[in-house]
Amino acid sequence: MKILAVESSCDETAVAVVEDGRRVLADEIFSQVALHEIYGGVVPEIAARSHLEVITLLADRALEKASITRKDIDAVACTYAPGLIGAVLVGVNFAKSAALALGVPLIPVHHIRGHIAANYLAFPELEPPFLCLAISGGNTMLVDVRGYTDMAVLGRTRDDAAGECFDKSARVLGLGYPGGKPIDDLSKTGDDRAYDLPRPWVNDGNPYDMSFSGLKTAVVNLAHHAEQTGEELDKPGLAASLCRAVSESLVGRTMAAAEQLGYDRVAVAGGVAANSRVRADFEAACRKAEKKLYVPPLRLCGDNGAMIGAQGYYEYLAGHVADSDLNAYATMEL
């Protein structure tokens, strides 16, 4: 079954063709980073305009790359939540019209479920159940993946997402936007014990919930303090200390949850999975606990259409299809 998949929830416009949920025939992405760079963050209106401008071009390219025609498309899948509402609307309305015109099923896909499904593309042998940590610029959640479409959120961030913490820290360090990669690069030459940063720990309630705003504030305060006193900031040291603090918070909880639920397979998904400290720490922790770790290659960690096509296949098998009145939503439970 060949699924045309559309993703437009944030600042990436993407159209992919995925066969049977596992084989990527095409995965076209247009990144808007350059458009938002001058603001230092994703401006919703600008994102929505750009999606509309490039979406048909990407769909054309996806067919070409996949060497198929429109008649070969068996279903159309799209991200319908969560995301910037104006941005998601473009993908949803394009996708549902295309599905109607082609006379094929329309499959709504939850963006985070898509991120989790990126693992199915990278690891053909991986099947639920497993534990997955989904970490991106907008979301941070620990998910019990019981089945392809049966999931439970074990814990989530109470405030900022992990990626947001990197982005905002990068700005005060003058590293530009998006902040994940420059922080990662800088951290490699730094001492991860240079600064004693608070561990984002939530003391009350759910032990798997996380918090990153205190960590972000600590970095911002350090930078401002250094500016005011004229003190030289050890930027590589601060970047390394930040990566360590984020990583320890994520890895510790994930491993504890895997232990509690008796999972021997742990997957990581989302843009922050690209962080090399997070990857290295997960590798070490899983080796030690004798668990198998799954982290998709970089290209599949960021937003892409292929992951929507992968999850879309399993949503279709579960009977999750929509009519032409499908709407887009800014927020939606997993």
Binding site: Y39, G40, G41, V42, V43, P44, E45, L84, I85, D167, K168, R171, Y177, Y329, A330, T331
Partner: peptide, 9 residues
């Protein structure tokens, strides 16, 4: 600050 606007539904 950096997204100019946050939307809460």
């Amino acid at each position: 600050t950096f997204t100019i606007v946050n939307e809460y539904d």
